[in-house]
C-alpha cells in the first residue's frame, strides 16, 4: 500500500493536517505511527483505512479487506455486544457465528448480553477490536489499541498483530504509551507539523513498567539473573526467602525478585494492571 503525495485537511478553509505524505507499507510489515496529540496520527490511519479521502494525492494498493479499530469505540448504539458483533460479521458477508471465536478470544463471553452503552471503556475497546478482526483483514488499522485495555487483553494485541503480518497482512497502529516495544520488527513513522518522516522506536516510558516477583532455587539465582538481563529485563535485587529482611542489591538495571507477593498473585490470575 502506498501514500502517493497525500495531502489532507478538514474543510476547504482549514489548515492542512497532513502535507505531501509519500510512504509505503509492504505485506507482512507493522508500522507504528508516532506523534503528539493532534499531530495527525488518527487522520493518517483513517486515510489508510479509506475512512477519509485525501484532499490531494491518492492511497494506492489498499488490500480489499480492511479492519479499522477507532480510537474510541462508538458505544452509543442500542445493541448488546454479542448482537453487535454478530451483525458486524453479517455486514462483512460472514456467518454471524464467526464472531464467536473473537468473542471468546478477547474474553468478551461474559459481556455478550450487555448493552454497548453499559460496557466499560476497555471492554468496549475489545468489541471494537473484535469487529475489525472478524473478516481476517489484509490491512489492520489500530488507533491507540492499548487504550483502556486490561493487562490480559494487552498481551493479545501483539499476538494478533503477529498473526496478521504472518499471513502477509499489514498493520498500521498508533501508540503513545510505549507499548510498541512489544512489537518486534515494527518500523516507526513520526507525524509532526503535518509531515511524515521515518523515526527511531521510542524507549518505553519509565512510568510504564511493572515489578514481577518470582521465586527460583538458590542454586539458579545467578543463571536466572543473567538470563533475565539477556532478555532485556532489569534486575535490581535478590531477596532470600529464608531471611525476608535480607535483600541484596544487584548491580545494574532495576527490578526486584521476591516470592509469593500480591503482584505475583494478580499476575497469575490475570487481574493486574500496569502502573
Amino acid at each position: 500500500m502506498r501514500f502517493d503525495g497525500v495531502w489532507f485537511r478538514y474543510g476547504r478553509r482549514a489548515d492542512w493536517t497532513l502535507r505531501e505524505v509519500d510512504a509505503a507499507v509492504e505485506p507482512g510489515q507493522t508500522v507504528v505511527v508516532l506523534g503528539r496529540n493532534g499531530a495527525g496520527k488518527s487522520t493518517l490511519l483513517q486515510l489508510a483505512a479509506g475512512v477519509l479521502r485525501p484532499s490531494r494525492g491518492v492511497v494506492r494498493d489498499r488490500p480489499p479487506i480492511v479492519g479499522w479499530v477507532p480510537e474510541r469505540f462508538p458505544a452509543d448504539q442500542p445493541f448488546t455486544a454479542g448482537d453487535y458483533l454478530h451483525r458486524m460479521a453479517e455486514l462483512r458477508g460472514h456467518d454471524p457465528g464467526e464472531a464467536d471465536q473473537w468473542i471468546e478470544r478477547l474474553l468478551l463471553t461474559a459481556h455478550t448480553g450487555t448493552r454497548l452503552s453499559d460496557l466499560s471503556k476497555g471492554t468496549a475497546q475489545k468489541v471494537g477490536l473484535a469487529q475489525a478482526l472478524i473478516a481476517r483483514p489484509g490491512l489492520l488499522i489500530l488507533d491507540e489499541p492499548w487504550e483502556g485495555l486490561d493487562a490480559v487483553a494487552r498481551t493479545l494485541v501483539p499476538e494478533i498483530v503477529a498473526e496478521v503480518t504472518a499471513a502477509g497482512g499489514m498493520v498500521l497502529l498508533s501508540d503513545h504509551r510505549g507499548e510498541t516495544a512489544h512489537l518486534p520488527g515494527a518500523i516507526h513513522w513520526q507525524v509532526a507539523e503535518g509531515t511524515l518522516a521515518p523515526a527511531e522506536p521510542p524507549p518505553p516510558p519509565a512510568h510504564d513498567q511493572v515489578v514481577i516477583e518470582i521465586t527460583v532455587p538458590r542454586a539458579a539465582v545467578d543463571e536466572t539473573v543473567v538470563r533475565l538481563r539477556a532478555q532485556g529485563h532489569a534486575v535490581s535485587s535478590v531477596r532470600d526467602v529464608s531471611a525476608p529482611n535480607r535483600t541484596e542489591p544487584v548491580p545494574g538495571p532495576t527490578a526486584s525478585i521476591t516470592p509469593g507477593g500480591a503482584n505475583a498473585r494478580k499476575a497469575a490470575d490475570g487481574s493486574w494492571e500496569r502502573g
Partner: peptide, 9 residues
C-alpha cells in the same frame, strides 16, 4: 464512527 466502520466493512 459507526457509519465509518460500516463504510470500511
Amino acid at each position: 464512527v459507526q457509519r465509518r466502520l460500516a463504510r470500511v466493512a
